[in-house]
Simulated scan of single mutants.
Amino acid sequence: MTLAQNRVFGRLDVVRAWADLADAGVNYSQAEVRRPGWNIDTHRSGLPAERPGGPEPGGPWELACALVRDYDFTPPEIVRAVYDPQGPLLGRNLLLQARFHLMHFFCGVRVTEVLDESRDNGDRVWGWAYETLDGHLERGKVTYEVIKHQRSGEVEFVASSYSQGAPTLDRVTLLGWRLFGRRTQLRFYRRCGERLREFVRAQSRGEEVFPGPRLRAGHLVCAPKDATPHRWDALALHRVAPG
């Protein structure tokens, strides 16, 4: 089963577009990041708890880490991605499809940080961060963390970010961003937490949350695993690297 056959990304040659990301650089400098010109957000979502102490084998923390690693928590109605699962997580390029109704924007991000640590306060943390690449409709960084508070047993998912719209957006993309961008961005983070909590609960009960095969394009895979084509995808307005 291939992405081309299923038109998950409409008419786009995703293999070529993903390959082009290898030559792209991060499109901002951290020295630029400051309010009020940038949105700085932290979104926390509670997950099923464990007993106090270290992460339980096969427990909610480990289940959540696996879902976050594969980018399967992202809501497919808002954002989809293709990437090479064979390479290391650090340095991984993802071609994202941001979906604003019938406007689809294809942008690149790169994983620039992987977190795997126990903090001084007793928290056990795993996660990763990506930064936006040249041509992205935004500039900034998103960090996804799965945290177990080992003293209490509480487990949570934290998405923290700083971002702003790219200053070089073309007229059509700028219109879409002004109409839907910030509102969709906040809905994205809310839906990420909701989906991750739902999936972890289901898997903890022994349920299979992704019964179908993952869509592929050559050596690339599509995330999330439950992304399916929509009959209007081929008619959507496509913009590749609009920034």
Score class of each variant (00 low, 15 high):
79 V>P: 06
29 S>Y: 02
167 P>R: 01
62 E>C: 00
140 G>F: 00
150 Q>T: 08
35 R>W: 10
154 E>P: 14
215 L>D: 09
48 P>T: 01
73 F>V: 04
176 G>N: 07
152 S>M: 03
131 E>I: 07
184 T>G: 08
55 P>K: 04
36 P>K: 14
192 C>L: 11
210 F>Y: 05
178 R>K: 14
79 V>K: 07
75 P>A: 13
109 V>E: 05
69 R>Q: 06
83 Y>I: 05
143 T>N: 07
115 L>I: 14
89 L>N: 10
55 P>H: 02
187 R>I: 10
68 V>P: 03
171 R>S: 12
51 R>H: 07
190 R>F: 11
26 V>L: 06
216 R>G: 08
50 E>C: 10
53 G>S: 12
113 E>D: 14
136 H>Y: 02
52 P>L: 01
10 G>K: 08
28 Y>P: 01
65 C>N: 04
132 T>S: 03
170 D>Y: 01
208 E>P: 14
3 L>A: 15
58 G>M: 07
79 V>Y: 00
182 R>L: 13
110 R>Q: 14
3 L>G: 12
197 R>E: 03
1 M>G: 13
51 R>N: 13
184 T>P: 00
195 R>M: 10
183 R>Q: 12
162 Y>T: 06
183 R>K: 15
160 S>R: 15
188 F>C: 11
3 L>W: 07
202 A>C: 14
94 L>Q: 11
148 K>S: 00
169 L>Q: 00
236 A>P: 06
8 V>D: 06
81 A>N: 08
19 A>C: 11
213 P>L: 05
190 R>E: 15
140 G>L: 04
167 P>D: 11
181 G>W: 03
87 G>H: 04
74 T>N: 08
98 A>H: 08
234 A>E: 13
147 I>N: 02
208 E>G: 09
125 V>M: 03
155 V>Y: 00
10 G>I: 09
218 G>F: 05
2 T>A: 08
169 L>E: 01
211 P>F: 01
137 L>Y: 02
180 F>Y: 07
132 T>N: 00
15 V>T: 12
235 L>K: 14
18 W>L: 15
123 D>G: 11
80 R>H: 03
230 H>K: 15
109 V>N: 06
196 L>F: 02
130 Y>W: 06
182 R>D: 06
204 S>I: 02
91 G>D: 09
240 V>F: 03
222 C>R: 01
25 G>W: 02
73 F>C: 07
165 G>E: 00
93 N>Y: 09
104 H>E: 06
163 S>I: 05
107 C>M: 09
69 R>L: 07
172 V>D: 05
129 A>I: 12
134 D>A: 11
128 W>A: 07
80 R>M: 12
